[in-house]
């Protein structure tokens, strides 16, 4: 069996009295494409935010490449309010900020595009390389890091070539058409040199043709950059085409997991999310 990349363990995220993610357990192995699906408000993006450090889980842990990177247990006011399971199982607090998690090799895109608006396409990708910069401020100011900077610029050019944005590299990021902005967000995430890529609804707002292109693109970059991919998506064509395994969330709880074929025939998933065709 291949190496385990990401493991979310008994993760519960509770906001006040609302349990957004309830005792979530999932595993992603090296080289897999795993999808997280579910109806709106099921807690998919919250699960992403817990994984990437934007939120601190109320209870539970996250492991990355065999190392525990996040852990928390109910504290303070939450002690009384806590409605989830496994209370008392975790005793440590490990809460790195998102940038530290990105440096470990996990990069993400956003559901609503978050590009740096005043910057060109090229700079958007180049800035993502900043977290791999070793030069200090003084050597950056006095250009003593020229070799590193040159190398980074070269890498960004190559990356833009791969994702097909080389011809628009000097345009403002926001002047690109929607589909290309999505692609740029993925390119930017790739520039941070991740081993695990998290895509939050990469096909949102895309037409069927753009969605097909994106499906092929995700497969391509997985092979080319040796990635493991974890994605949230509502386009079932895309999900069923490229996922190795699928997890289904409903009201914060995991209701199913399995291969696309298994999920498509799972009664609970059909009731909660997929539904049946009208003429069936």
């Amino acid at each position: 069996m291949s190496k385990n990349v990401l493991r979310i363990e008994n993760a519960t995220m509770q906001f006040g009295g609302v349990v957004a993610v309830d005792n979530l357990n999932l595993e992603i192995n090296q080289g897999e494409i795993v999808a997280l699906i579910g109806p709106n408000g099921a807690g998919k993006t919250t699960a992403f935010n817990v994984t990437t450090g934007v939120y601190q889980p109320t209870n539970g842990a996250v492991w990355f490449n065999g190392e525990k990177i996040i852990e928390n247990h109910p504290q303070g006011k939450m002690k009384k309010l806590y409605k989830g399971e496994n209370d008392g199982k975790y005793t440590h607090v490990l809460a790195p900020t998102p940038d530290k998690i990105t440096k470990l090799g996990m990069a993400r895109t956003f559901q609503n595009i978050r590009l740096w608006k005043s910057q060109t396409v090229f700079n958007n990708v180049l800035i993502a390389k900043h977290c791999r910069t070793t030069a200090g401020v003084a050597s950056a100011i006095f250009r003593l890091n020229r070799r590193e900077e040159e190398r980074q610029r070269q890498e960004v050019l190559e990356l833009l070539e791969v994702v097909g944005l080389a011809d628009v590299k000097d345009e403002l990021a926001t002047s690109l058409p929607y589909g290309k902005q999505r692609r740029l967000e993925i390119a930017r995430a790739l520039a941070a040199e991740p081993t695990l890529l998290l895509l939050d609804e990469p096909a949102a707002g895309m037409n069927p043709q753009e969605t097909d292109e994106l499906t092929a693109f995700i497969g391509e970059i997985r092979d080319k950059f040796n990635l493991t991919i974890f994605l949230i998506e509502h386009h079932m064509n895309l999900v069923m085409n490229i996922s190795d395994r699928i997890y289904v969330l409903d009201f914060g709880k995991l209701i199913a997991e399995g291969t696309p074929a298994e999920i498509q025939n799972n009664k609970r998933v059909i009731d909660a999310y997929l539904g049946v065709a009208e003429d069936a």
Binding site: D99, R114, T133, I141, R188
Partner: peptide
């Protein structure tokens, strides 16, 4: 000017444009 055009200056601009994205791309905000 040299600072602003360096990799750190670009990181500053990223923080100005979108803090959440900057942090997600590995820029230590504080």
């Amino acid at each position: 000017v040299l600072l602003i055009n360096s990799t750190y200056g670009r990181a500053f601009k990223a923080i100005r444009d979108d803090e959440v994205a900057a942090e997600a791309m590995g820029i230590n905000l504080s």
